[in-house]
Design a protein around this nucleic acid. Structure first.
Lengths: 109, 109
DNA sequence: ACAATATATAAGAATATTCTTATATTAATG
DNA sequence: CATTAATATAAGAATATTCTTATATATTGT
């Protein structure tokens, strides 16, 4: 049954699926997820860790939150982001396993 | 250790990872994968199942093959494509699990 | 209320992806 | 070898994404 789990998927669902996957398909967003692995961080901390403009980080964070990948929480002046579901890292590990020659090395050719 | 599996990933590797994920991030390419679940198919058969131009399908198939998602085999006049690693469907199932409210329903809001 | 800090949003320029159209390649057949 | 069928490739137009710059909003402290 596994092999057939994708049969008869409607075009609309394929669109939504593609949009979801697209959410993960950007180096800065992957870096955000890497940095957020395990812990919660404020936008400022993420900004320091990532290295781009404040506006750019903010936009990527919004995108990740809008798609349900991240959750956020305001505390006074700051906003903290976290990965909503740790299964996400299983997914990313699977991506590596599938696309990498030598998984230990990280993302591959 | 799981939560930290993405720490210290180089920018270059993030780029490659994003490109890999991007390969899956298109409705027509997802549809190709759905259609190819389990079986091997010729370009012509895929074309019939997908519904777009011959050129367009061919380009998406190339992209999927170049990234290692699909493998191809020529037999006389025709070229047959297949999913290289069935783990791909585990990955897609995880995407659904993560992004869908009701997984049974398919890709979700 | 005002200034300072942290974050978000808007608008458009820069860039990348996708699609369309036309043409090329490859293999089979008469 | 000319023709047909199947698939691939090239070039550019159409479209979508990302980044930059400027500005807005929210919260805290004075």
């Amino acid at each position: 049954m596994r092999a057939n789990c994708m049969a008869d998927v409607s075009d609309e669902k394929l669109d939504r699926g593609a949009r979801c996957i697209k959410t993960l398909a950007h180096p800065l967003r992957l870096k955000v997820l890497a940095v957020l692995a395990g812990r919660e961080m404020s936008v400022g901390e993420i900004l320091d860790a990532i290295g781009t403009t404040q506006s750019n980080v903010s936009q990527h964070l919004s995108q990740l939150r809008d798609k349900g990948v991240l959750a956020s929480r305001r505390e006074g002046n700051q906003v903290f982001y976290r990965v909503r579901d740790p299964k996400l890292f299983d997914l990313l590990a699977l991506v590596r396993e599938l696309f990498c020659d030598r998984p230990v090395d990280g993302w591959a050719a």
